[in-house]
Each structure stands twice: as C-alpha cells, then as structure tokens.
Design a binder for these strands. Sequence first.
DNA 1: ATTAGGG
DNA 2: CCCTAAT
Length: 696
Amino acid sequence: MVFKKRLDYGFNTFNVPNVPRAPRSNRRCRSKQVVEDSQICAFELLASLARKLLQESESSASSNASEGHDRVSIGKDVVKREIHYYDDKPLKIECVEQGSCEAASAAASESTTENSDNVKEFKPAGHDALLDRTPIKTLPSSSEQISGDLDSIIRKGNAALGKFHGDGKSENGFKQERDAKGLDIGKSSIANTCPSKDPVESPMTFTAAVNSKRDVNLPSRRDPVRNASFSRHSNDNKLGSRDDDENFSRFNRLSYRFKTSRHPTRVGERRIRKLLTSKYWKAAPKLKDFEHSKADCGTKPLYRKRKAYYNYDRYQYDTLYKRRKFFDRSSIVTSDGGISSESVCNSPEKVVDGDKGSSASMSHGVRGIPPLLTGNKASHQSKDSHVKFSIKSFKIPELYIEVPESATVGSLKRTVMEAVTALLGGGIRVGVLLQGKKVRDDNRTLSQTGISCEDNLDSLGFTLEPSPAKAPPPVCSEEPSLPISCDIAPQHLTSIPATPVVDTEIPDAAPGPLLLTYSAYPMDTNHKPVTSQTNVLTDQSLSESRAIVPVSAMNVEALAVIPASPKVRKSELAQRRTRRPFSVLEVEALVQAVEELGTGRWRDIKLRAFENADHRTYVDLKDKWKTLVHTAKISPQQRRGEPVPQELLDRVLAAHAYWSQHQAKQQGKHQLGTLRITDGESDRNGVATTVPTVSM
DNA sequence: ATTAGGG
DNA sequence: CCCTAAT
C-alpha cells in the first residue's frame, strides 16, 4: 500500500532522461582526447629533440655499425612496437631502412621546404613519390607490401616481430573505416599542415599558428581533386583514419626525415620516436588496432580488437583498462569524427548530436565532452556562425633538457623520455591565444572572446601547457586555470546538477573548447600538425643535445622538464570524473530501486533506474547508497550538499535495514513486492507511511 | 563485467 | 569518486 505511493514516483516516472549521458566508456576519456593530442604533440617535440640528439651522437659516433646496433640494441622492443603499432610504418620503415625512398623523401622534403601556399601542387608530387613506393589505393596490395616489408624487417630484427605481424593481420579491421572516412581527412589535414609555413617561420618556436581556415572545411574529402592530391597520403593514412594523428605524424615524420636526414639518423630518429611513443602507446589498443588493421585486410569492429587485445595480454588488461578506454574513445572519435569530417569542419551540431545520440553511435569521440557542455555550446554556437579553423601547430612551453656531455646517448634518450613522460604525465592542456593574448576565461563563448568567423582566426593560436592539476612538480607554473566550463548556457546546466563539467578536469576543459570549436581538426589529429612543427623545430632548433627552446611567448609557465622526475608517468592515468552530485530526483530513483531490488544488485538497479544516466555507474549507485545510508544516520546538521528529503532518508534506512536483515539479497528478484518495513527505524521517524511496505 | 569495501 | 580484490 504504502509502497504504492512510491511506485508513483516509480521508475516510470523516473527515467533520468535529462541527465546527460555519455557512454560510460567514453566518460572517462573525455578529457584525454585532448590530452592525447597534446601529448602527441609533445611527443613529437621530444622526439624531434631526441632525434637531433641522436643524430649528433650518431654522426659523431659514426654511423653504420652504430646505427645498426643501435637499432637492435635499442631494442627489439622498439622495433617491435613500431611495427606493431604503426600499420603505416611499414612504409616508413621501408623507406628508412631501405633508403630507397629517395623519391619520396625528395618529395617530402620538397613539400616541407616549400612553402606551400600551394599545397595542392606540392602535394601531388609528394604523393606520387610515395605512391610509387606504395600503392595507396589498393589496400590489399599495399597491405601486402607492407606486410612483406614488415616481414623482412621482422626477420631482420626479430622473430618475435613475426608474431606481431601475424596478429596484425588477423586483426585488421579498421581499414574500411579508415578508407571511407579517415583518409581524406588525413590528407586534408596534412595538406594543410605539412606545407605549413610555420616551420619556416619559427620552427624553433613551434609557433603554433592556428590558422583560420575556411578552406578547412573538409567536406572536400570527397573532393576528387583533393583525393587525388592526397591520395598519397591516403596510403599513408590508410592505416587508420582513426589515427589521424598517426597519419599526420607519420607523414610529417617522413617529410621531416627526408628533409632532415636521410642517413642513419633516420633510423635513430625513428627509434627515438618509437621509444617515446611506444611507452605511451603500447597501452593503446588504438594504435594496435590500426596496425593490425592495416596489416590485414580484415575488417573488424573496434571492440573486437579490444577484446582480442585483452585476450592477448591479460595482464595488461587492468593496467591498460583506462587507457584503453581512452584510446578507444579517441579512436572512435577519430573514426567518427573523421567521418564527420570533423577534422575539417567544426560543427557544433555534430558534436551535440554525437552527444545526444550517444546511444546511437556507441562511441562518438565528441561525447567525451560532457553532455551539458556540448549541448550548451553547441546550441549556442549553432545560432551563431561557426568558426572554422585548422591548427597547424601548437605553441608549447619551453622544454629544457639538460644532459651532461658525458652522458650517453642512451641516457639522453631516457632523459628525453622521462621529460616527455613527466610532461605528459602531468597532463597537458590546451591554451588559447588570441592575438598573442592568452585567453583565460574558459567560460566565454568564442564570440564573446572575439573569436569569430573570419576576423581573428589568423590571430588565434593554441598552446600546450602543462596541466595544472597533475603537472609534475618541476613543471607547471600555471595556475590551474579553470576548466572550460559552460557558462554559455548556465540555464541548461541547472538541469543537471553540478556540472562543472570541466571543473576538475583539465582535459575536459581542453577538449570542450577544442572540440566544440575546433572540431576542424579533431583534436586527435591535431598533433599531426604539431608534429610537423616539431619536425621543423627539431631540425633547426636543436643544435645541441642540450636544450630545446621552443617557444612561445605566451606561456609564462615555461616548462622546465627535468629529467629527474621519473614517476610522473603515473599521472597519465585518467583524471577524476567530474563530480556530479545526485539530485533529489536521482536519490529518489535510487531509493526506489533499492527498495525493490535490494542492495547488492547494483547492476540491476542501474538498469532499472539509471539506465539512461550514463554517468552513473552501478558503482556510483552503490557508493551513493552507501553515502545515503550514512547520511540518514547522521544529524541533519552534519549533512552537506543538497539536502535530501527526510522522507527519502527514512526510506533509505528502512530499505537498508530490511535488506541487511534479509541477507538474501539474491532472492530479491522475486521480492520486489515484498519489501516491508520491519524495522523500527523507519517507524521512528514517523514517516512510516512513506516507508516502503510491501503490501502483499 | 560485477560486487563489496576501503580510502 | 577512485581503486582493488574477489568473483
């Protein structure tokens, strides 16, 4: 009877539809996407540094033998990974190793060197060259070649590699996607990026110039011309549409490589890169996926890979779990985003859709952004004209790396690696520069900030900064700037309890704006540009193993990366989810569900009452229940936050007592109707009427 | 993937 | 909320 009352509230009513949600898997990743991108950039940077150093060392050391050894010594791991991770790599490797890529290199260098106002012109050449090496369009053939290359490489390097290779084949799956979606994007992005003048301008500085690109609209992907021009890239890219980054980076690398070093260095460079990246990426299924997919012709869903991965290495599961999610997400994003052409154009709407339609597309990268944010911004923006731009490079804070002259190359590498790790580990966030000024107010809309369609885009720049929160000790000087939040539509926010979506999460902040704003390049892909920059930078800037000083004025908070911080690595792990206090409504629903299902069946409870609230996991529900029980037991004065109606608390106590006694939680299934108030507790409040009692 | 608990 | 152990 009484129960009935509750029922009214009942699930039916209570669907937390309003609650923004994102696929759980995505949730965690939100911020990361951006971060990753950033990371990549950082990597590139470091890599370039390392490269230089390496070069030096190698050159001095004298080459051949050292090189070969190096490679080997550095590790099979490295090689392996490389192969493993980069599907494309084969291509690269091929070039590098065989040194046959003259043409390609030339082309690449050319492209790089050349200013490319005429990207198009330039591109074709580059592509062609590349193409010669590897037929792009025919995936199968290319893949085969690749595989062949890989094989050779593998053989050379290590038998183990063979394994990977095989694996890769078995798991290829994304190709199609990529082909369909990604390639073009990659191309476009590349086109924009590579030829960039920036390098010329201030390679050292990494000036990042985000150029406004109207042209960026990549709808053109389908544009025949572009395709043609980019076809080359496509080869490269074919690896993964998802990994635009990868593609970019690769591309950049190639170009860089050619440009810079054709010799032993290349290998070293690669190596370093691998090293640098490998750590980070090893965990990332994403890459692997690509790799695999590339290698193979097969097609499989991402999920599959994941699973495969798990199976493959169970131990890593736990460790990687988060990362994976992250990656998956990103990858997803890429794929989707790529598809959406997000890379090129920004369309808030898309973002929004992604969010809302999360269920539809299990994983849209965009979703990573807190729904609210997304929604709000999107809505907001949609009204306005959209701002489109591409990011050619990021400015990064200074990175200082000191190594005694007596240090070995190996140690140098390690140092760089550590520095990078530290940097990344701390988390990177993106800063926005408008006309040289740092835009600190994350809450402002683009238009409010003065970033409008075509006006300022040229003066718009992005920086990579250590994230305030996790930045490793040495590094960040920046104040934790507020995350991007969603002031834009506060009203909306209200509906959802707290949502400083970004508040704690640096990454969120970055992604939020970025995504919204910049979807032009999927953040994922952003690195690529950076990469290119990096390359340039490397070339020019590093003369000595000592210090690289890129950069940017704006960042007061120059990073001094001290090699010393070893453990930073850890920070890399996911950030806390944004806090989202339970609303009374949610509590109501939870109580209701627990009354019916009992404790211990959180999964079912989740399904019943929070199925639509992706941000509430069963663990969350369990925890909430725990706190509710506690809250109910303490005096009202001691309670904090949004007050929970006593009535609910009473029910909580009643249900808690009931189910506690009733140890048999398991039986609960049938007991939905059986809940009774047996405990005095419920009565004591006198709320008995409200107390759940099963009529029966 | 879930559950249960500690932090 | 996060993290983990145990399922």
